[in-house]
Design a binder for these strands. Structure first.
Length: 362
DNA sequence: CACCCGTGGTT
DNA sequence: TAACCAAGGGT
């Protein structure tokens, strides 16, 4: 791996057949692009919503959420006026829930400050909550055809291979470098097609595993292919192992059909979402800790039944081992954080609590 | 920069 | 099966 490192964009692209690459990419994209819901219009708002949903999320996962979301909130005004609970419910199950809060916050700013028009200035658009370097470039190029780089994981993988860039793509600096490359490559092309072509190539041909180099439109100019380095790229440092937490959850029902639920803090993991009362505790202490928590926090003094049901939930950076406890109490306790099940179902729960709900309450 | 922030499909 | 990781952004 004694590849020389390039400090400037000129170095990497100096001997690169730029024109050939662009023509091949654009021709391939025109012929092979997928038909996707968010490619049916140039509405900046619709493009924007799709780009937020697609962050770290697969196309097939996003599709149904996107359709449903656009029906509920077809315009910036509709999303701006919606209640936060509605937006969170529409996002339930998609993950990374701060995306939804930031999107609504940003859309409200667009309505209030920009008259409901998504700014055409990249810097103005990037100043909105939840809009980072990638989303800025994606929306500005796709909706407004501005020559802005949109460097995501796909693009970094493609460029790492085509240009034989061996820097760690986990580093901020590497993405910056690739943005500089794209600024050169995109110049004079239709920006929307060029950026989407790069992304599409990464999604369909230049995949992480088993890339289809045989049918790749830019195989002839791919430096990694030439050097038989495709499988080794891109370089990405391994992340640390996830921490484990043992949790105890209480499903408390009243005899008149209510459940005890609580809302998570507005910041941090699963911010603002609803859940059954839950504590973190060592396995030997979890029942006692949970009973104490219920008594102190909700004035519910009960002996919990251990359902002996355990489930594991894996997050991006930690693992929950969840033990479920259960109790039924008289209806007289129905107040405060108690809610009828039919009402509680309208709130947004994290997936692990949805599972508990289905298994315990049906 | 390093760490936090979800979920589900693939290998 | 466990690791990888997908159209990233905030702090």
């Amino acid at each position: 791996m004694m590849q020389r490192s390039y400090d400037t964009k000129e170095d990497v692209l100096a001997t690169f057949p730029n024109q050939y690459f662009r023509e091949q990419l654009l021709q391939w994209y025109e012929a092979h692009q997928r038909h996707l819901p968010w490619r049916e219009s140039k509405d900046p708002y619709r493009i924007w919503v799709s780009e937020i949903m697609l962050q770290q999320t697969r196309v097939d996962t996003v599709k149904p959420y996107y359709q449903q979301f656009m029906e509920k909130f077809p315009t910036p005004e509709a999303l701006a006026e919606a209640h936060e609970d509605q937006v969170m419910k529409a996002w339930e199950g998609l993950g990374y829930y701060s995306r939804a809060r930031n999107l609504q916050s940003a859309v409200r700013e667009v309505v209030n400050t920009y008259g409901g028009e998504v700014p055409q200035d990249p810097e103005e658009f990037a100043s909105l909550k939840g809009v980072g370097p990638y989303t800025k470039g994606a929306v500005m190029s796709i909706a407004y055809d501005l020559e802005e780089p949109a460097v995501d994981g796909n693009v970094m993988r493609v460029l790492a291979r085509v240009l034989l860039l061996t820097d760690d793509i986990g580093k901020q600096r590497t993405r910056k470098h690739m943005e500089n490359c794209v600024r050169i490559l995109i110049s004079g092309t239709p920006p929307s097609d060029f950026n989407q072509g790069l992304i599409e190539l990464g999604a369909l041909i230049c995949t992480p595993k088993n890339p289809s180099c045989d049918i790749c439109p830019v195989q002839e100019v791919c430096r990694a292919y030439d050097q038989q380095m495709v499988e080794q790229l891109p370089v990405k440092a391994k992340k640390q192992s996830q921490k484990q937490q043992t949790m105890a959850v209480a499903v408390i029902e009243s005899e008149d059909g209510a459940v005890l639920i609580e809302q998570r803090p507005k910041q941090g993991l699963l911010a603002g979402m609803w859940q059954f009362p839950m504590v973190e505790a060592p396995p030997a202490l979890r029942q006692q800790s949970l009973q104490q928590y219920l008594k102190e926090t909700y004035q519910v003094d009960v002996t919990l039944e251990d359902t002996e049901q355990s489930l594991e939930h894996v997050f991006s950076h930690l693992i929950w081992k969840v033990r479920v406890f259960h109790a039924i109490v008289p209806s007289s306790m129905n107040r405060g954080n108690w809610m009828q099940k039919t009402e509680a179902e309208k709130l947004a729960f994290p997936v692990v609590h949805q599972k508990i709900w289905r298994q315990q309450l049906r």
